[in-house]
């Protein structure tokens, strides 16, 4: 592990923007909270963070975490502790489409490294970086439960499996043409299982 920047320093004490869930998102949040018994609303934190991430630009800024804390009536540190524990929450801005290539055993046995290199070359970015136009962020991920259809990558809710270079060309092209942000919470998804 290289030098690390202390977690709290990554945040500016920026001005608190006016944040609010859209009516629809708020309905989803209320529905999630109602899944738990009275007084156990903290349980809603993980799913609500997913909703918040999708709602507020694909990442969780300190302001967003503060807001989620206020919606669930818990302490901000409780939100930060959780958001920083799990890999699906972005604590920094990301591109509209985050390509997460699985790099674990079965995928590696089937050429995941080649896929990563290919995407790096094609998009002109390294793992962890975002393209200049803000369209793509490339990440590597650990086993995504798709080992039988390796190599694979996830983008938002979609699983792209049995990847070849051509398939990668195709999906990048499709995402670019659509130009939309992809979230885990998206209703439309592709999968090739």
């Amino acid at each position: 592990m290289g030098a690390q920047v202390h977690g709290t320093q990554e945040f500016n004490k920026g001005k608190r923007a006016e944040l609010k869930f859209s009516e629809e998102a708020m309905k989803t949040v209320q529905k999630i909270i109602s899944n738990y018994p009275e007084g156990k609303h903290k349980s809603a934190l993980l799913p609500v963070l997913h909703v918040a991430q999708a709602e507020f630009g694909g990442w969780l800024s300190p302001e967003v975490m503060d807001y989620v804390a206020s919606v669930l009536n818990i302490k901000p540190i409780e939100v930060f502790e959780v958001a920083s524990f799990y890999t699906m929450y972005n604590l920094k801005p990301v591109g509209k489409c985050v390509l997460e290539v699985c790099q674990t055993s079965s995928c590696w046995l089937n050429g995941a490294e080649d896929i990563v290199k290919y995407i790096e070359k094609k998009l002109g970015i390294k793992v962890g970086e975002t393209t200049k136009d803000g369209m793509f962020t490339l990440k590597v991920a650990e086993c995504l439960g798709s080992c039988g259809t390796a190599p694979m990558l996830q983008c938002g809710a979609s699983y792209h499996e049995n990847l070849t270079f051509e398939k990668v060309d195709q999906l990048i092209n499709d995402y670019k043409t659509a130009g939309q942000r992809r979230n885990y919470t998206d209703l439309d998804y592709k999968n090739t299982l």
Binding site: K40, S43, L45, L46, P47, L49, E78, V82, Y86, T87
Partner: peptide, 27 residues
């Protein structure tokens, strides 16, 4: 019966970590 989604953490497969996560905490 309800469904709860996790946040990305293998350790939440360990049953007590799973319960912590289900309670909205670190796994």
């Amino acid at each position: 019966c309800y469904v709860q989604v996790g946040g990305g953490a293998y350790i939440c497969g360990e049953e007590t970590a799973l319960l912590e996560s289900l309670e909205g905490k670190r796994g």
